[in-house]
């Protein structure tokens, strides 16, 4: 069954780095997983922890948050805040015994098309091994 399982990975990508990195991967004709569902945000720090939770609880098998490398934020410090918030959500997941592997943070710059493709593929594989998100079928959420 896992062979047919195609994960859905909701991906919040910052406009300046990770989304552009994804574009570069595309224009460089690099193959990357079609499990990635990209959503452009102006900055990774625009992503309230609740966005990640909503994606998780709505049945995304994985949730990817991509931003500029620390120090490179277009708005100078946005991604430092992102990192704290992400650490917070991860900790909430861990304290509740939820699969925190379903959340991933990655720093991908605009020039890192190959890195984007690699992260996308590796994360897809990781999620494929993890299997379908149980929230996908749960009706009492």
């Amino acid at each position: 069954m896992n062979k047919e399982f195609k994960p859905r990975i909701t991906s919040f990508l910052c406009k300046w780095c990770s989304y552009t990195g994804a574009d570069l991967a595309g224009t460089s004709r690099l193959q990357y997983s079609t499990s990635i569902i990209p959503l452009q945000v102006m900055c990774s720090s625009r992503v309230d922890p609740v966005f990640l939770l909503k994606a998780y609880l709505s049945g995304s098998d994985g949730v990817l948050l991509g931003g500029c490398h620390p120090g490179d934020c277009h708005y100078e410090t946005g991604n430092y805040h992102t990192r704290r918030r992400f650490a917070l959500v991860k900790e909430v997941f861990e304290s509740l015994g939820l699969e925190s592997e379903r959340l991933k943070l990655s720093w991908i710059s605009a020039s890192e098309g190959p890195k984007f493709a690699r992260v996308a593929n590796e994360y897809t594989e990781e999620i494929r091994k993890l299997g379908e998100n149980p929230t996908r079928k749960s009706i009492f959420l």
């Binding site: 922890p49 609740v50 918030r85 959500v89 509740l96 959420l141």
Partner: peptide, 9 residues
């Protein structure tokens, strides 16, 4: 669940 988890974060 979103409400409670959201409040937790």
């Amino acid at each position: 669940m979103l409400f409670h988890m959201g409040r937790l974060t």
